[in-house]
Design a binder for these strands. Structure first.
Lengths: 152, 152
DNA sequence: ATTTTTGGCAGATAAATATTCTGTGCAGGA
DNA sequence: TCCTGCACAGAATATTTATCTGCCAAAAAT
């Protein structure tokens, strides 16, 4: 898909730090500023780069308690699925939702302040959603690695 | 921790799109460009903003197959833990590693090209690591939500 | 109550960077 | 061989970031 090695290096660099200037990138890639600029534009237009974001340290905003919540729906009908998905997507405590194979239907990554906040979240937010059969929570003791970088 | 409502809005905006100019941000926040600039610098220096990154669309770089791999160590000694963690952290297919409570010791989020690539990854990379007792894989059928934004 | 200090801000300016423009060389196709 | 289309470099321009100066209001000190 991306065959060009220069584009690969460029993507690696931008995934690591998107604030690098075109001049810096040009130096690392052995290109002119213009060439770098045009390659980036192309990667953006092609949708390879979807967006640029600032990453926030969870502990600085009281969101360092992470849990994985496994969810089984009562019944896996089309209506239930889309209903549940549209509702759970709206919850800001839920960073990630995956529909998965196996014993449970969904895995949610939830980030809140602490265990007490998680309890409140489960009680007042998650379990008020319709179509949920059962849940099972797994708590993060320590986040060992957490990157957004896809090696290309 | 972050009490100021303007800083909260600013963080929300930058988490959504870090390429917005200070001028745009100033408009949305009702501040001068200088004020925005200084607030951002402060958030960076305080470590609230940890980094700026480009996000890449997995399907554009042949990494759209996602699996959660649950791992049990043979023995949970200090040596095993640090050994395993330092090794697993190095694998580029593994985006996230969490040490967790419950039946398994670790949850890994793995992103590769397809099921075949996952098989290869398990065979040639993961299971060659020392100290691993057992593993259990859960496959993502569809990624429903996947954000890096912490609502503040 | 008055003075001093501090922090956040606006506006002007300077410096750096991004973006556009122009032209060149090269590879592939008619 | 002659087009044609890229990818690129370098120059020119536009935009943005970063710095500097001074103002004002709130808090602290006298």
């Amino acid at each position: 898909m991306i065959s060009d090695p220069t584009d690969k290096k460029l993507l690696a660099l931008l995934q690591e730090n998107s604030k690098k200037t075109n001049k810096e990138l040009a130096g690392k890639l052995g290109l002119s500023v213009t060439a770098v600029y045009e390659r980036i534009r192309k990667l953006e237009r092609a949708g390879v780069i979807s967006k640029y974001v600032a990453l926030v340290r969870p502990e600085k905003v009281e969101r360092s308690f992470t849990a994985f919540c496994h969810i089984k729906l009562v019944q896996h009908t089309k209506g239930n699925v889309t209903g549940f998905e549209s509702q759970v997507t709206k919850l800001p405590e839920v960073l990630e939702v995956f529909h998965v194979s196996g014993e449970y239907d969904y895995i949610l990554k939830v980030m809140v302040k602490d265990m007490e906040a998680y309890r409140e979240f489960m009680l007042n937010k998650l379990t008020t959603l319709q179509h949920i059969g059962s849940t099972q929570s797994t708590f993060v003791i320590s986040p060992v690695k957490n990157t957004t970088e896809l090696s290309v």
